[in-house]
């Protein structure tokens, strides 16, 4: 265990963590910037929603190693190809949750809002988005954890990150290095899960929390 701690003290370690976090955060941000507008755009068309959800479902089935490996022959080695693959990996869960979340806001609520004279934009901003927020954030959380986990595989196409330590440890039979990489990645994934779980709760409107509690009590 002491040897593992020594690996954490190496200058190479914070660099690996930094690249890992950078890769994951950029991929997630860009994926959100792509998936959310698309979800908003297809919001009013049931055909558009069906297409978006189906594309998302197929996208979710693509293995992460397959995506990263496919980036290699087309985009080459390095950080940028890894980033592109991770963006492609992060989009489907956000897209699915955002489209279905916006869709599942009940017709009665929207009708009531329209009856009160709200415009389409006001309904989207004031009603649909807040009600769908927990579902949208659940999608972002799924993507975030998946991206942090899959960024480990970026090492195979030269993307860097904590996967480098695992691969180095494995190839040289250096167990402390291998364990240091594995434990750091596991820790990072769990932190991400907890952090985004907190965000999800923070963005749940107070009114919805009351409704959720009532439902549970029933």
């Amino acid at each position: 265990m002491n040897d593992v701690l020594k690996v954490f003290a190496r200058p190479q370690f914070p660099h690996a963590v930094l690249v890992h976090v950078e890769l994951s955060a950029l991929a997630l941000l860009i994926a959100v910037a792509i998936a959310l507008p698309v979800a908003l755009a297809v919001n009013r068309s049931s055909l558009g929603t069906a297409v978006a959800v189906n594309i998302g479902n197929i996208g979710r089935a693509v293995p992460s190693l397959a995506l990263l490996a496919l980036a290699l022959p087309f985009l080459g080695f390095g950080f940028a190809p890894s980033l592109v693959a991770l963006i492609a990996l992060a989009i489907p869960p956000i897209l699915i949750n955002a489209t279905t979340g916006l869709r599942e806001v009940s017709k009665e609520v929207i009708d009531a809002a329209r009856g009160m004279g709200l415009s389409g934009w006001q309904i989207l901003r004031g009603i649909q988005l807040p009600i769908a927020a927990p579902v949208i954030f659940a999608g972002i959380r799924t993507s975030a954890v998946q991206v942090v986990a899959s960024a480990t595989l970026a090492t195979f196409i030269g993307g860097g990150g904590l996967g480098d330590l695992i691969v180095e440890g494995f190839q040289k039979g250096d167990t402390p290095v291998l364990l240091a990489g594995a434990l750091a990645v596991a820790f990072l994934a769990i932190i991400t899960e907890l952090l985004f779980g907190g965000l999800e709760r923070a963005f749940t409107p107070a009114g919805l929390k009351v409704a959720q509690k009532r439902q549970k009590a029933r």
């Binding site: 494995f170 167990t175 990645v185 596991a186 994934a189």
Partner: peptide, 14 residues
């Protein structure tokens, strides 16, 4: 479920 797969595999191997 949260532990990244390459990490879990690496831990299992040792």
């Amino acid at each position: 479920y949260t532990i990244p797969s390459l990490a879990l595999l690496a831990i299992l191997v040792v």
